[in-house]
Design a protein around this nucleic acid. Structure first.
Lengths: 241, 241
DNA sequence: ATTTGTGAAACCGTTCACAGCA
DNA sequence: TGCTGTGAACGGTTTCACAAAT
């Protein structure tokens, strides 16, 4: 599924027991984990690689290679034990660790993240929120009082940047000074950090542009049907459906 | 940045004049475009591959390969014309097209997207917003009145899904029925669509998990310093800094 | 019979090294 | 001289095909 890797990470990292997990593998593990947790909730005891494959859009061979990288987990002839798989993938992803997360920038996006039941899971502990605007400082969001960005940032493992691009580098510097070892940056700009700090970028505009580019090229394959779909050359704002 | 790619797309697509642009290349073009637009605004006429490289964190060779895929754009000895580059990358990304975007789900995230000055750029026309909740239906957000998801979805090129996972497949079906050719899905679930419809996934939780996994492995390399960083084994909610 | 785990091959993208051109 | 464009080498991931295990 995913291709992008706008990511400053080593090309591969050591797995739990010295085995090596490649970046593409690590990016797929959370997807596997989602379907495995679904099976676990339903009380299903085993799952095979081709089931995981069809449910995630990955090939069965790739699933087996990925899982083999974490040890001898499967049983030939029957498949993988759901509980064991969940444990092992969880270990690789750090689900068995507690780590602290601070979020800087309590606009719509910051609030969306903090309020989302999907974001802070698997050991992530939200420990502080920051914003520059007096209109939100002091308000309670997601069980935390929003602090002023002028206060020193509390020590944490992970920092999330949801401020405008112009402020992102300064916030990154503050996070690094606070000892953060990983930054998830939603601001549309590159931030510079010392080695030893991992930065991962999520940029909505870029995701949309990638999507549109794929759409246009796939429509080109289908023939010259752009006009009939309401996709028009730029100019005086034409009617778009 | 994007590392990585949860993406249902052909492995490579035909470029503007029959040349082929790989998925990694397409993912990098918006990043190049961002620095090129900066140069354009400053009135700088030419830029060379190594400048683009240092400003984007990509190697100069990769920049040249990517750009060469769109034609003979550079001038040996001097570099690339900023205006030409902007035009050509814009064409590859569809910046010269107008396409319509509908957003389904006007919670925090949907509002964050619609209100962001960074999201809807380069030809994207927001044409309708939908939600299921009576508390937002009828309200104006980003210049649009929020419609009920029970109304038929208006024809559009791109659909953005920002609803809870449980509703995502149903919304995807509605979008497909409305003729949408590309879906940007923020819901943490896989959606099934007919061939010819492109789906691109953005999943905050997965991005965080990937980041944390990289962080943990990079810390493992650095030695057993997890404890001192406040990253602890799971158990009774211990104090995290 | 069924499904894993894995050598070997195929594939893809990046980097090297340099030829080609202004 | 300086920088692009690209053949060739390289490194890494995916896929194939099958042996191994239950």
């Amino acid at each position: 599924m995913r291709v992008n890797r706008r990511d400053k990470s080593p090309a591969s990292v050591k797995g739990i027991r010295g085995r090596s997990l490649s970046n593409p593998t690590i990016a797929r593990l959370p997807i596997y984990q989602r379907v495995i947790e679904g099976y676990s909730r339903q009380g299903i005891a085993t799952i095979d690689s081709s089931t995981i494959a069809t449910l995630t859009g990955v090939t069965a061979t790739t699933v087996r290679r990925d899982l083999a990288g974490m040890g001898q987990l499967g049983v030939r002839g029957s498949g993988y034990d759901v509980a064991l798989l969940r444990t092992k993938i969880g270990e690789a992803l750090g689900h068995d660790r507690n780590y602290s997360v601070v979020v800087v920038g309590m606009g719509n996006l910051g609030q969306a993240l903090v309020n989302s039941s999907n974001f802070l899971i698997h050991g992530a502990q939200l420990t502080a929120l920051y914003d520059a605007s007096p209109s939100v400082i002091g308000k309670e969001i997601g069980g935390q009082i929003v602090r002023s960005i002028d206060e020193p940032i509390l020590a944490a493992s992970v920092g999330v940047i949801t401020v405008p691009a112009a402020a992102a580098q300064e916030v990154a510097d503050q996070l690094v000074a606070a000892g953060v070892k990983a930054i998830l940056n939603f601001a549309p700009t590159v931030v510079n950090v010392p080695i030893g700090v991992v930065v991962h970028y999520v940029d909505f505009s870029i995701e949309l542009q990638i999507l549109v580019s794929h759409m246009l090229h796939s429509l080109n394959f289908a023939g010259g049907v752009l006009q009939s779909l309401g996709i028009t050359a730029s100019g005086p704002s034409s009617n778009v459906p």
